[in-house]
Amino acid sequence: MSPPPPPPPQARLLLDSAALIANWQDFARAVGGAACCAAIKADGYGLGARETLVRLAAVGCRHFYVAHWQEVPPLLPLPDGIILSVLHGVTADELPAALALPARPVLVTAAQVALWRQTGRPCEAMVDSGMNRLGLAPAETADVLAGMEVAVLHSHLACADDPAHPLNEAQRACFAEVTARVPAGAFALANSAGIALGPAFHLDLVRPGIGLFGGGLMPDGRVSRTVGRMQARIIQLRDVPAGGSVGYAAAFVASRPSRIATVALGYADGYARGLSGVAWASAAGVRCSAAGRVSMDLAAFDVTDAPALAEGDWLDIPFDPETAASLSGRTSYELLVALGQRFERVWA
């Protein structure tokens, strides 16, 4: 006997293909002749890497980046003409999988270069131009990569979200010195925020990430279009008298007789605890304030002024990453990648 089908999820992400595509197209227009790629690591910043790849490939994006080799198989089969690269390079224990998968490493250490050199295959490589994180030292790059077929030589900006920071220009100048000495098919420096620094940072290829998914600013200074919003099913409705409290630590106390909806959404789903008391939901266009603390699996909202609701109905919950970040004290990056697997992800 086959097992019964799984029950439907009690929370869902409603994802906007048009907003995703428009964000990528804005980046592509901003960089002129440079190739506009897409970073889709961490399952497309929590929204769905495979779905993102398919949609952006259909409108002209040809090159995608993930962080780890285990992120590659869920993206297969790749559409025709698509290049996939792995930002953290390759280690000896990853080499068998790397050789079997249709992706190439961005090599980040001299040891990785030596390992990959034995394969005779093309690679990409990362230069540390001042972030002091991953990458080859600028002084060693030419010697370490000598004789390698380097499809793309990268560096990564540490302070691109602060256009006035002097490290931006210092990194650009450092990388320019390296690119003058190291032959490669293309040179890449800018992430989402780096694109806004202007043509001197665009080079041959850019790698937008967070800006595709609703976080940060677009090159013209607008906030990135929101790609996802949440819905959560009401598990229980209850009437709370004036003076009654809701949730842990009695953090919410009703100032009037109130109707409270408790929904299947909590910080285990990535709905941050820091949104307690400051977030809201919507029912038929009526804004319903949060009532008490967000817990692991549940959140509560005051639906007193909303039209009549029933248990099993859905509440709409906005998820603009930048607004949620300002309310919760976390970054839009954290909030997006924390979105859990209990959501049904519904693309339109």
Rank of each mutant, 00 (worst) to 15 (best):
D43N: 15
K41G: 07
A284P: 12
G135I: 02
A18T: 12
Q341W: 01
Q341S: 12
H154T: 13
R293C: 14
A325T: 02
L76A: 07
I260Y: 03
Q25N: 04
C61L: 07
L15V: 05
G198E: 01
S2W: 13
Q231Y: 03
S328R: 02
P105A: 05
I40L: 08
V113G: 00
P138V: 14
P122C: 03
P74H: 05
L13H: 08
A249N: 07
R287L: 13
P102R: 01
T141F: 00
L75Q: 06
A28L: 01
C61P: 07
A67V: 15
Q10K: 14
A170S: 04
P163N: 05
D316P: 09
S192M: 06
A39W: 00
F201N: 09
T179K: 14
A151G: 10
A151R: 14
T323A: 13
T226E: 10
N191F: 01
R233H: 12
V263K: 02
P166V: 06
A58F: 09
P208W: 04
L87W: 09
P318S: 09
A348F: 11
R12K: 14
A49W: 12
S17T: 10
L145P: 09
D26Y: 03
L107K: 04
L275V: 07
V240T: 14
A30R: 09
W24M: 10
P96A: 06
G46H: 03
D297F: 13
R181P: 01
G274P: 13
L56M: 09
A281L: 06
T141I: 00
V227T: 14
N168G: 13
L15F: 00
D80Q: 11
L101G: 04
V113D: 01
D320A: 14
G285C: 06
L315D: 08
L197Y: 03
A57C: 02
S276Y: 12
C288M: 08
S328P: 05
A97T: 10
A151H: 05
A291P: 08
V90Y: 02
G89A: 07
A291V: 10
G244I: 00
P102N: 09
E177V: 05
V72N: 08
A308P: 09
I195T: 11
